[in-house]
């Protein structure tokens, strides 16, 4: 890709201080988001995807500390910017967030339209009626009737609330929208409609989108590029077609084969034995090692390096050269459950 990235993140780490010790929630995460692309981050609960976003948006709780070599938005460094400047100049106007459980993020005692108007007026010098007509426009973009502006959140269904939150995130024309599990907990048909809206927004408004979800099918459908996270690290990162055609990391292989598809009834599904690692204390090896059927001694004692396989395809695995064999073996349940 010759374009310069809209967001550049290099070696971002986040640690939480807890009574039990230091939790290394995100480790050495690097990625770029290019203009007008959907960058998907896939991962299961506890993989650090939400912490990563909180660190980017400076929403970490008090016991969380983040540290990065570089976080840049269109060439402007964000990690050294003061809190105040970040809130005034970046938040909402350049980077907007649609939080997880966006459905419960609206204030129940304010009218939905007024909440968005307030957000706009806090950040710009617009008059109330200007802001109001802007909200009308936004409601149209996300497919809500404009007379719903004067309704309260409880009068909205889950899908409508989610669309209202997306409308709010679009209010100041941000160049990057981060959506954390935007369709989790919604019914299939509602999810379908929201995903379609997100695609339309991307093509009309030229925003970049970071889409975070555990749903492999949603991410496959929406993303141009995908990063797979596990144990606080990015395991594999590639163009979405490449990631699904030639996955190289054992975890990606497992996830891909674990997900049932409505178009492949009767296909054998695998499950990955064990459970996600505790992130307490410093990692000494690959976090996936304990659940990986292909692990070797090196995986326990040494942290793998990120290897580039060309075409923006990066993988965090010592055995990346054995990927073709692993890919074949990983489709069978016995591979995953015989080794331990």
């Amino acid at each position: 890709m010759s374009q310069s990235p809209r967001l550049e993140v290099r070696n971002l780490s986040v640690r939480y201080q807890t009574r039990g010790g230091e939790v290394h929630a995100v480790n050495q995460v690097s990625f770029d988001v290019f203009p007008n692309e959907v960058f998907g981050i896939a991962g299961e609960s506890g993989c650090g995807k939400s912490t990563l976003i909180r660190a980017l948006m400076r929403l970490l709780p008090e016991n969380g500390v983040s540290d990065a070599d570089l976080i840049q938005y269109e060439g402007q460094s964000l990690d050294r910017m003061s809190e105040k400047k970040f809130r005034e100049q970046v938040l909402w106007s350049k980077i907007a967030l649609v939080p997880q459980s966006a459905m419960n993020s609206l204030n129940p005692v304010y009218r939905v339209g007024d909440q968005i108007i307030e957000a706009i007026r806090n950040h710009t010098s617009q008059e109330k009626h200007e802001a109001r007509s802007r909200v009308e426009e936004l409601f149209d973009v996300v497919g809500l009737e404009s007379d719903l502006m004067d309704s309260y959140p409880h009068e909205f269904s889950g899908g409508m609330r989610q669309r209202a939150m997306i409308a709010m995130s679009l209010a100041l024309d941000p160049g990057l929208i981060i959506m954390d599990e935007p369709t989790t907990g919604l019914d299939v048909l509602v999810q379908e409609r929201i995903l379609r809206r997100i695609r339309e927004i991307r093509s009309h408004i030229a925003s970049s989108i970071i889409l975070i979800t555990h749903d492999i099918a949603v991410i496959a459908e929406m993303s141009d590029r995908i990063a797979v996270m596990y144990g606080g690290r990015i395991m594999e990162q590639a163009q979405s077609e490449d990631l699904f055609d030639t996955p190289c990391h054992p975890y990606t292989l497992g996830l891909k084969n674990a997900f049932p598809s409505i178009q492949k009834l009767g296909q054998e599904l695998v499950s990955i034995p064990g459970s996600p690692p505790s992130l307490l204390g410093k990692q000494t090896g690959c976090p996936f090692e304990a659940r990986c059927p292909f692990s070797i001694d090196q995986c326990v004692t040494e942290i793998p390096k990120i290897e580039s396989l060309g075409k923006n395809h990066e993988v965090f695995c010592f055995r990346n050269t054995d990927a073709p064999q692993m890919r074949e073996q990983a489709t069978s349940m016995s591979t995953w459950h015989s080794s331990n």
Partner: peptide, 15 residues
């Protein structure tokens, strides 16, 4: 409608 709304874990398939 319901079946055509189910996302498929394959980026090449367009519903």
């Amino acid at each position: 409608a319901l079946i055509s709304a189910v996302p498929v874990p394959d980026p090449r398939i367009k519903r």
